[in-house]
Amino acid sequence: MTKAIRNLNPDMVINTMRACGHRIFEGELNLNIIGVRHSNTRANTFNDAICVLYQQGGEWQLKQYKATTDAGLYWRKHPMNVDGTAVLIAGQHLSLWTLGYHQGKYRALVQHKPVVVLRDNNQDDELDTNTTPHAELQQGYFGINCHRANSKTTSTQVDKWSAGCQVFASPSDFDEFIALCEQSAIKYGPYFTYTLLDQADIKESINHGI
Rank of each mutant, 00 (worst) to 15 (best):
A90N: 13
S170N: 15
A4I: 02
Y106C: 00
S172K: 09
L99G: 05
D120V: 01
G104I: 06
V110G: 12
H102Y: 13
Y194G: 00
L109W: 04
L127H: 10
L73W: 00
F174N: 01
I210Q: 05
K3C: 01
F168R: 12
K66S: 14
L137W: 02
E26Q: 15
H208Y: 06
Q64A: 05
L96V: 06
T132N: 12
T132Q: 12
I33H: 07
L94V: 04
R76H: 04
N121E: 04
G100F: 00
I206L: 13
I5Q: 03
N122I: 05
N44W: 07
D48K: 00
L29A: 09
L8W: 00
D48E: 10
L31S: 08
M1T: 03
D70R: 05
P171G: 13
S170C: 14
Q183D: 12
W97H: 15
I178Q: 03
T2F: 05
A49Q: 02
G143H: 04
W161P: 02
G164W: 01
L127N: 11
I14T: 01
Q64M: 04
A71M: 06
N30V: 01
R76G: 08
A169M: 06
L88N: 00
H38F: 03
N130F: 06
A49F: 04
C181T: 02
L118F: 06
I144M: 08
N121D: 15
H208P: 07
W60I: 04
Q123M: 14
S151P: 12
N150R: 13
G57Y: 13
I202W: 10
V167E: 01
T68I: 05
N7Q: 15
L197N: 11
T131Y: 05
R23W: 03
Q138Y: 15
N30D: 11
H134E: 01
G143I: 07
A149K: 07
G84D: 06
V158W: 08
Q139K: 14
I144C: 03
A4T: 04
Q166A: 07
L31I: 05
M17L: 15
V82Y: 09
N145Y: 02
Q111V: 03
G84A: 09
S95W: 05
R119S: 04
